[in-house]
Amino acid sequence: MINKLKIFFVILIFLFSSGLKASEKKTPFIDTNWNFKGIFGKFDRGELRRGYQVYSEVCSGCHSISQLSYRNLYEKGGPEFSIENVKQIAASFDVLDGPNSDGEMFTRPGRLPDKFVDPYPNIESAIAANGGAYPPDMSVLAKARKDGPAYIYSLLQGYVEPPKGYELDEGVYYNKYMDGNQIKMPNVLFDDLVEYEDGTKATTEQMAKDVSNFLMWAAEPNLEERHKLGFRVILYLIILALLVYFSMNRLWSRIESKK
């Protein structure tokens, strides 16, 4: 009786689960090696520095990254530019400050603690300048999409000709990794678009990978510290668990032998 019931339930579950297999069809993201993945994962400084270059020369025209401060660029675990270098970067931006003692707002060169300056004064002007679509803030973009870095990496290389007979709306581009395949952002990366300071060849693939790494760091600036601390914490806990386990066995052996 019980065995028959068991078999009945197993068959029932099997039938249900096989019915659910019909999953939606989605293009899988392009596979690549991510240095920050894994227990000992760390960012590659070169990738982060080149990624910052791509961001500042290409993306930053439309996309803000307002949670990042200039000082983050030299802090540990990031691109780790020299502090002098970062001061120069910050000073190249005009920061709105004030009001001063006359009650006037004024602009001054950026300083290390300032947040990254937004390309547009407000969201509405960003929408107006980009054909009705808001270029999302990139501070946590790599965490705001499923499999974020791979998504960004693939999307930047996903501009292809639409399939025959595909109706594309006005002012929209076809991208095979975008949900619904329609994206308002045009293809921005072309081979040799930027000239890398470290001499790396700026292929589209390379730039896409560098900027995806940079955005992952921007979203998770403490990732390296997190991995490092996590390894120590878990190691400590495992040793502690072993000590407690052996003490426990010793303690309980008194009870077991009392029988």
Partner: peptide, 17 residues
Amino acid sequence: LYALIIFLIITAGFVFF
């Protein structure tokens, strides 16, 4: 305590990785 430490190891796995 022993069970709690094992539980914490799993928690730390999520928190850190």
